[in-house]
Nucleic acid binder design. Structure first.
Length: 454
RNA sequence: GCCCCCUUCGUCUAGCCCGGUCAGGACACCUCGUUUUCACUGAGGUAACUGGGGUUCGAAUCCCCAAGGGGGCGCCA
């Protein structure tokens, strides 16, 4: 059996849309699952809308998501060039081939593909003009996702514009032929176009590839598919917000496909192993940022500590929560107690800022809550103070101090927690309190409690 | 207007191919618990087979129709 060759063929328009990313991902997964080749081809035939900076957006996002390509820009390959703008001679040659066979003809300066079938002229309601219809035989597609789909083209269509540039349908098919693409995995928005593509394959006398039309990603609410303007629609947004690329990729897999082993958050190696086109869903999926955040949080918490630190450190430096002088060991100590609680890297600076400055932010809400709930926080801290001044500075020692304070004043140990938490962190929640105190150290802890009392 | 695709909790989905489980899980939400309030975590809970016809002892599952949703119909990709 010949090797699988799939391609992702984006048009560089300056954005990398989440739907495009998912299409790329399914192609990539299929290539990796089958041991085939993943080809990146740049469809830049529309000169009006393309530029080198736009290309960079795509390449950067592809790399960020860990989708490496075997052939394409910057890596080369035997079927290049991989930019359609550099393949114009080929398109001219292929056009001539169709013209010589009588499959294409010139009209109004453009070239049209000639369909086979009886012709008649009718008024088209949608186009609001008279058109020549062709009673062509339906094209039959056995789609790997959707099954048998039958559709007939009913008009000749342009394959080369009067300005000399080929149109999408033509270059798409020519390149798929020349690059020996075996499987076309693309969005369902192309399903209706497929009959055009099959007509082209037929005209060339070439057996078409297998097709798999994957469902679209719909807006979270409201009608229609995700558009550039929707929140969460652009991959760069996730990069900026410090989402983990592996989590974004993981979530994208869940839109239109379900892992077979019952897990939702799982390593990419396992996804590759389980991925099958036949298991791709047929119905569109609505984007849900909350679930994506959940996947991100899950992934974040299970990250090896060193990896977590490598991600957190530059961001904390960037936000001036720490400077370069903070030792890896000290940072690791702090991160160790916060990682189990953390849900996003984006909010890490505010979540853990109090570890590194005396000038930490105090949450008014938490303070109000404190007074409302637990009586007199200052009184509690005065009761607690002598015990933690003397105790052994370990989790167990600090815990014993809290218990001792409770026993001495006929209270529950937890009565001291909220005041201590607020005094030392300015927050109402966060990492485990004993861990916070231990990591802050005795001097800092006592200093902050005394500062609070003043 | 024409053509194509789709239809299970609010959302993502399992089950459907090869009819028979209280229709299962996850996110979100609610309740309760945990060293109180918590961006951790644990236990519960609310919540769905779009509608109508068939076929069948029995239908989420098979067939038909309708409705709804999505997409396409360009000398855009």
């Amino acid at each position: 059996m010949s090797q699988v060759r799939v391609r992702f063929a984006p048009s560089p328009t300056g954005f990398f849309h989440i739907g495009s990313a998912r299409t790329a991902l399914f192609n990539w997964l299929y290539a990796r699952h089958t041991g085939g080749k993943f080809i990146l081809r740049i469809e830049d035939t529309d000169k009006e809308r393309n530029s080198p900076e736009f290309l960079k957006v795509i390449l950067d996002s592809m790399r960020w998501l860990g989708m490496d390509w075997d052939e394409g820009p910057e890596v080369g390959g035997n079927f290049g060039p991989y930019f359609q703008s550099q393949r114009t001679e080929l398109y001219q040659k292929k056009l001539k081939e169709l013209a010589d066979k009588g499959k294409a003809y010139e009209k109004d300066g453009a070239w049209w593909l000639r369909l086979e079938g009886a012709r008649s002229t009718v008024f088209d309601d949608h186009l609001k003009r008279e058109i020549e219809k062709v009673d062509a035989a339906p094209m039959v597609l056995n789609d790997l996702v959707r099954g048998r789909v039958e559709r007939a083209e009913d008009r000749d269509f342009v394959i080369f514009r009067s300005n000399g540039e080929p149109v999408f349908h033509f270059v798409n098919v020519v390149d798929d032929i020349e690059m020996q693409i075996t499987h076309v995995i693309r969005g369902e928005d192309h399903l209706s176009n497929t009959s055009k593509h099959l007509e082209l394959f037929k005209a060339f006398g070439v057996k078409p590839p297998e097709y798999a039309h994957i469902p679209l990603i719909l807006k979270t609410d409201g009608p229609g598919k995700m558009s550039k303007r929707d929140r969460g629609a652009l991959i760069e947004e996730y990069q900026q917000r410090h989402y983990l690329p592996s989590a974004v990729r993981n979530y994208l897999c869940l839109l239109g496909w379900t892992p077979t082993d019952g897990r939702e958050v799982l390593p990419i190696e396992d996804i590759i192993k389980q991925f099958e086109l036949s298991a791709v869903h047929q119905s569109n999926a609505r984007f849900d940022e909350r679930k994506m955040s959940h996947v991100n949080a899950q992934t974040l918490r299970t990250l090896p500590a060193a990896e977590f630190a490598a991600i957190a450190r530059p961001i904390l430096i960037q936000h001036r929560v720490i400077d370069e002088k903070v030792s890896p060991a000290r940072l690791a100590e702090v991160l160790a107690i916060i990682q189990e609680k953390v849900i996003s890297v984006e909010h890490l600076p505010e979540f853990m800022g109090f570890f590194f400055t005396e000038n930490f932010k105090k949450d008014d809400n938490a303070f109000a809550n404190l007074k409302k709930k637990g009586g007199d926080p200052a009184a509690r801290l005065r009761e607690l103070l002598p015990h933690i001044e003397a105790c052994e500075w370990t989790d167990a020692g600090i815990e014993a101090a809290f218990n001792a304070a409770a026993a001495a004043h006929q209270r529950k140990a937890t009565d001291f927690f909220a005041p201590a938490r607020f005094a030392t962190s300015g927050q109402g929640g966060g990492p485990h309190l004993l861990g916070i105190l231990r990591v802050l150290g005795r001097d800092t802890t006592l200093g902050r409690i005394k500062a609070f009392l003043n």
